[in-house]
């Protein structure tokens, strides 16, 4: 069987994300990284392979600018056998509708038995690409999966939905986006990191996979951002650093008392 894992390059998390204490704005210029949620999808692919299923290959797939190859190198270091980079000027500015369509076209060309994704992209926070791709590929799908067992061409998946935990049986081929509780991603070995650039990497333009130019990019997007504005100002809370714990506790207790909470 063949597994494709969708991965995305995002601005480096935690470290850079909230670096500007003055403007409290996200600094998006930070070093780019592999979307941390996608490492769970890669790990899930590796566990299927190591769990005794005959997996011929794990292919990491991304759509993004030239720099996105770095995310592919990291994906390969984490276990993917090769990678596919969909990159084309025509794609820039794609919304969810356009991105999902374009990714589905690349995947169609790969013809996988299983497509895995992360629960969300750290920068886009859309939670939707998996279900968009699945409908294009005409495959069953499920998001936020935290347990996945494969037997006889069927996945038994568990996930938390509105009313508690659901157990769902999904026939392959399928598109599954995994929640971050599904596994603890491994760290890449130094050897894997060094070898990552030597693994096959295909670069595709839209024409290579039959993507219609007028369905992607800004022109093909079905939504348009009309305006960006700051959120309503909320009075900033008081922040204290714990230097002397006895003092910190005194401050907390005083705060609670002042508000008649104790």
């Amino acid at each position: 069987m063949k597994i494709c894992v969708l991965v995305k390059e995002v601005p480096d998390a935690a470290v850079d994300k909230r670096i500007d204490p003055e403007t409290k704005r996200l600094d998006r210029s930070g070093e780019k990284n592999l979307n941390p949620f996608d490492t769970h999808a890669l790990e899930a692919a590796m566990q299927v392979k190591e769990g005794g299923t005959d997996v011929e290959e794990i292919v990491a797939v991304t759509m993004g600018p030239e720099s996105a190859v770095r995310a592919l190198h990291k994906a390969v270091a984490l276990g993917a056998d090769r990678s596919v980079h969909l990159t084309d000027d025509a794609l820039s500015g794609s919304d969810v509708c356009a991105t999902g369509y374009a990714l589905a076209k690349v995947l169609e060309a790969e013809d996988p038995d299983l497509v895995l994704l992360g629960q969300q992209s750290d920068d886009g926070e859309c939670y939707t690409i998996g279900a968009v791709v699945a409908d294009h590929l005409k495959m069953p799908s499920l998001t936020q999966v935290i347990k996945m067992d494969l037997a006889e061409g069927k996945l038994t998946c568990e996930r938390q939905a509105e009313y508690g935990y659901d157990t769902v049986e999904v026939e392959l081929p399928a598109v599954i986006s995994v929640g971050d509780a599904i596994n603890e991603p491994r760290y890449p070995s130094l050897k894997a990191i060094m070898g990552a650039k030597k693994k096959p990497l295909d670069t595709k333009a839209i024409g290579d996979v039959g993507i219609e130019g007028d369905r992607v990019g800004e022109a093909g997007s079905r939504t348009a951002v009309l305006e960006l504005k700051p959120p309503p100002q909320k009075e900033a809370g008081e922040i204290i650093e714990d230097e002397d714990t006895a003092e910190t506790v005194e401050k907390i207790v005083a705060w609670l008392e002042e508000r008649k909470l104790i």
Binding site: M139, P140, Y165, D166, T167, E171
Partner: peptide, 11 residues
């Protein structure tokens, strides 16, 4: 091709 086995289990 996706079938609910159990729904809303309270853990």
């Amino acid at each position: 091709k996706a079938k609910m086995v159990t729904r809303g289990e309270q853990r």
